[in-house]
Nucleic acid binder design. Structure first.
Lengths: 127, 127
DNA sequence: CATTTTACTTGCAAATCGCAAGTTAAAAAA
DNA sequence: TTTTTTAACTTGCGATTTGCAAGTAAAATG
């Protein structure tokens, strides 16, 4: 794992099965993507970006160690998966799993809220 | 401001008007509540909790210094406001503004996602 | 007035962040 | 095939943030 990148935070228990703060689906979701960067990676995936470099090119400028850590975490959570960029290539592209694609509603509601309440914001993601 | 609690993170510029990483409504929203605790406070507000002590009583166990910091930040963002708990009382209750109430869709989509994909989670928030 | 409750603040060690630089393997070019 | 470039990370490290525990002061209660 990427050193110096760190987890989002430490859940209460570390044993397999329940590293959760509570059984609340919201807190559980936040344990997975409750930080400033993870949903931006997922946004980028919805926008068609798929390579490590694509994510670093986004305007928010995610540091590469954070990106490494978050991608690893998303893979572990089954929200993204990897496939070869071309047939037989060793280079991998990231893409959303069904679990990840199901975050569309979350992204869209956040986008809509931001567009309504934060002046000067502009959308990139379509319905 | 609560010392030792800290901001969620430092945006690029600190001058009034644009402490944003990008004009993306999602990244802008994450600048306001992209952390592990803020949306849990908002969830609690939707659930009818309104006092400092109520928030600390939630099962996730938010530390009081973090709670202070997040409430201050939410007030500053116009997502929550304060009113006296009783007429003439000095004690204040927190409640969602219209801007805050508009986060209902975000909370609900996160809840639905969690319920669908994270086994063992249970809902508390109604539609 | 004494006690309890509420709403915080403070201190501090540990964890995380984010910048900059370094590394390595794969791909492309020559 | 050798060289060059690009992609995808990793590492180091200072600064910031987190979270636990303890302390405090004002308000409410008895």
């Amino acid at each position: 794992m990427a050193k110096g990148a760190g987890k989002i935070s430490k859940p209460v228990t570390e044993e397999a099965g329940s590293p959760r703060r509570s059984p609340c689906p919201v807190s559980c979701a936040l344990d997975l993507f409750g930080d400033r960067w993870t949903l931006l990676i997922i946004r980028d995936l919805f926008l068609g970006r798929s390579r490590f470099k694509d994510f670093t090119a986004s305007p928010e400028g995610i540091p590469t160690n954070i990106l490494s850590d978050r991608l690893e975490r998303l893979l572990e959570a089954g929200i993204v998966q990897q496939i070869p960029v071309a047939d037989g290539s060793k280079r991998m592209a990231y893409e959303l799993t069904e679990k990840g694609s199901d975050l569309r509603r979350v992204l869209i509601s956040m986008r809509n809220w931001g567009l309504k309440w934060e002046p000067g914001t502009r959308a990139g993601l379509d319905e």
